[in-house]
Amino acid sequence: MKGELICAVCPVGCHVTAEWNETDLLDVQQAACKLAWPYIRSEIFDPRRVVTSSVPVVGGEIPLVSVKTDSPVPKDRMRDVMQSLAQVTVQAPVNVGDVVVSNILGLGANIRATKRIKKVS
């Protein structure tokens, strides 16, 4: 198979042409450096993303606490993660790094708070 991709490893953002079969990346053309290979390989065979969002916090100084997946999740599961997060609410106080949902959807990543939220009475 053949396709055009943007290498996002560095700000150069090479527009590369890649060739691959079912199991491996065969060729990368028009890339300025070798770093494109592992990136393009993962983009083709297992693209993953860190998902960041926010969840409501009860009794906090602001209404939302920001959260993230603590490791990248499969790109095509981002929507599922968002949908699952829509059901989640936490209670103040919250600290950076607190686990809000562990092993979300069994994807191996935890949802962790990324902001400290003080409790207000």
Binding site: I6, A8, C10, P11, V12, G13, R49, K75, M78
Partner: peptide, 12 residues
């Protein structure tokens, strides 16, 4: 913007 953001924020 950065290539990474074009890919991850728009293309995705």
């Amino acid at each position: 913007g950065l290539a990474r953001n074009v890919v991850q924020c728009l293309e995705d």
